[in-house]
Design a protein around this nucleic acid. Structure first.
Length: 206
DNA sequence: AAGGAAACCAACCGCGGCGGA
DNA sequence: CTCCGCCGCGGTTGGTTTCCT
């Protein structure tokens, strides 16, 4: 189909990343930055295509990623922004520090969309009296406004100033990271990984 | 306890936009 | 101005886990 696959070279690995590969990627980027993604795997000694490396880093390995469940505020933000922007996940993600577009997209498809559909179905046609032809074009998502107004997120600028200055905001510091994510218990692994990446692997400077 | 269904999420794919040559 | 290569994005897939019967 049209374009050649990005990993057309034989021997390039696909599928789930191993802890070892993660380690190599983290260590390399910590020392050299990602620079040219296409050239990165070769320089780092990874049998992956650049795209795959970028995705792994962006969605999983970046130190500033906030993992764990989405808060109600975050969900409300997503709902509002989606109503405003549509499927522009990267833009939405940029408004949610520590969250990735992939994660938001997943949350949307697995939770929020369904929840919306349910609610819009539960809501009788009462509102239709006042609806015009415009509403005929509405996907179920359109009713998100009703959901969010029912559960007011109150997202003015003060919310963001709180978020950005508050303790919830995860910084680049690994130490800070470990503190902020320990609650879900899973990040100890990543904190250790980051530490080990520096300790164990001493890649040559390129 | 076992099997099937549903939910979840990491990763892949292909396209479009952008910048440099 | 055009071409080419890279990056980033959004849609989709498929493997794994959890829930239900």
């Amino acid at each position: 189909m049209g374009r050649a696959p990005c990993c057309e070279k034989m021997g390039l690995k696909k599928g789930p990343w191993t802890a070892e590969e993660d380690l190599i990627l983290i260590n390399f980027i910590n020392h050299n930055g990602h620079g040219n993604w296409r050239a990165l795997p070769k320089r780092a000694g990874l049998l992956r295509c650049g795209k795959s490396c970028r995705l792994r880093w962006m969605n999983y390995l970046r130190p500033d990623i906030k993992r764990g469940n989405f808060s109600r505020e975050e969900e409300a933000i997503i709902i509002n922004l989606h109503q405003e922007l549509g499927n522009r996940w990267s833009v939405i993600a940029s408004r949610l520090p520590g969250r990735t577009d992939n994660e938001i997209k997943n949350i949307w498809h697995t939770h929020l969309k369904k929840r919306l559909c349910k609610r819009s179905r539960a809501e009788p046609e009462a509102r239709n009296e006042s609806t015009s032809d415009e509403d005929a074009t509405n996907s179920p998502m359109h009713s998100f406004s009703e959901v969010s107004s029912e559960n007011p997120p109150e997202m003015d600028d003060s919310f963001w100033s709180e978020v950005l200055s508050g303790d919830d905001f995860v910084t680049d510091s690994p130490l800070r990271l470990s503190e902020s994510v320990n609650e879900d218990g899973g990040m100890d692994f990543w904190y250790n990984l980051f530490n080990r990446a520096d300790d164990i692997l001493d890649l040559p400077d390129f």
